[in-house]
Design a protein around this nucleic acid. Sequence first.
DNA 1: GAAAATACCTGTTTGC
DNA 2: TGCAAACAGGTATTTT
Length: 303
Amino acid sequence: MPELPEVEVVRAGLAPAVAGALISGVSVFDERALTRHPGTGLDFEAALTGRSIRAAVRRGKFLWLPLESAAGEPASEAIVGHLGMSGQLLLREPGAPAERHERVRIDLQHPVHGDLAVVFADQRTFGSLAIDPLVQTMDAAAGGFGSPDPVMPVQVAHIARDPLDPAFDDAGFRRALSRKDSAIKRVLLDQTVVSGIGNIYADEALWGARIHPETSASALSTRAVNRLLAEVRAVLDKALAEGGTSFDAQYVNVNGQAGYFAHSLHAYGRTGQPCDRCGRPIVRVSFMNRSSHFCPYCQKLRR
DNA sequence: GAAAATACCTGTTTGC
DNA sequence: TGCAAACAGGTATTTT
């Protein structure tokens, strides 16, 4: 499922194609793709046609495309997107046949690359696109990866920075954990504490740091939190280098290709298979209406 | 006010 | 064989 590395692969693929491009047409095929857009599909189409995109920016799992404004001025609006569980953003030739589950198509004219189409396809319709105003960041640092502007969409403002963001506050993260009585895995998935981590990378980072997923966050020592943060960064970096995690056709880059990180997983989806450290079987438990995978020997629960 | 539970969604897999 | 239940898990909202 798209977590930070997968969304970053999409952002990086999109950026050179959309930056500087003029929106020549927009087609909304399913308004469920606009659940976070305040207006209708017609409004979405009309508001975007004729405008230009400046960049492709990402924080955590949120992606946004700032729209042009006066020269030298920071953009004041953006198309903000979230892939949800199964969303895809694909680059296609103009007039390309409709993708399965295609919800929105944005036709572009790029001064260098010519005409192309950005297709938003989404099987489970948890993903969405919207037009959203941009607001200043609290710390005056860049709003996300892909643009130096210290702004972000309103819908992203409550989301914490992600662990790969240079402005991520390590000390603030340690303080937040010390105040949380919830299980550490639940806290890792809380995007207001740290963004970009989903079920797969939470399981992987906890396995790497040898921490049981149900350990209380506030019970972790500073040393353990530092180890965990280092593992989070290591697993996200490695997944990014391998093009993300793909189990099926649900996650692909802008050209429809799968990533390779699924081959590097140590815990997620490995129920019953031997732990890569100690050889004992990985177990799966139900947790927050989803699955947690871990090694009960390497990741003991201490109270 | 924090933490936990639930709603939303559809294609595929599993189990009886 | 066929159907129903389980499963996948993002975020926002509701309940505890």
